[in-house]
Amino acid sequence: MPEKSVYSANAHLSPIVVTSNVRVEEAAPLVRLSLRGGEAAASHAGASIGAPLPLEPLTSTMADKAAAFWLGPDEWQIAIQEGDATAVFERVETAMADTPHSLVDVSERNRALIISGPKAAWLLNSQIFLDFDEAVFPVGMVTRTLFGKADIMLWRQSEDIFVLEAWRSFMPYVIELLQEASRELEAA
């Protein structure tokens, strides 16, 4: 495991859900790059961020304060905890200069939630139809899917920690439904 996950709770915001067995927190801002292209581009990009880009479907790779997610056969999302999106963009773009590809800064497009605790999977299953049994959805798995009616990206960072990303305007919907589903945990 890398020393520090690319996702950390945004210390400036209070948690969205806190119960004895699940927490939902907004992640701190980070740099997100959408990479489209072939494996050659992916290999150059991986070298530039210190984490080889995953080539197996629905898998992820992690480096210190960075992660790369397989989203499609020619599509990856790179996440880096670093202040300056432009600088990161230039670094990765330069590394792929001679290879056809598309690199787009989408740092601001998504917001991320960190859902953690023994009831994290249960909470997500209120709106996500995936099977979170570890044999089916192991640690490190990442996928796009639906949360209710919102498109999301979901990554299992560890057994009990999930990261959910959605386009920013969909996030209030996701948060409202997570809060709604968590209310009964407080009662129980």
């Binding site: 989203l71 499609g72 599509e75 639906l146």
Partner: peptide
């Protein structure tokens, strides 16, 4: 078919 809400393919 398109895996519209998944890999997009």
């Amino acid at each position: 078919w398109r895996h519209a809400h998944g890999c997009g393919r």
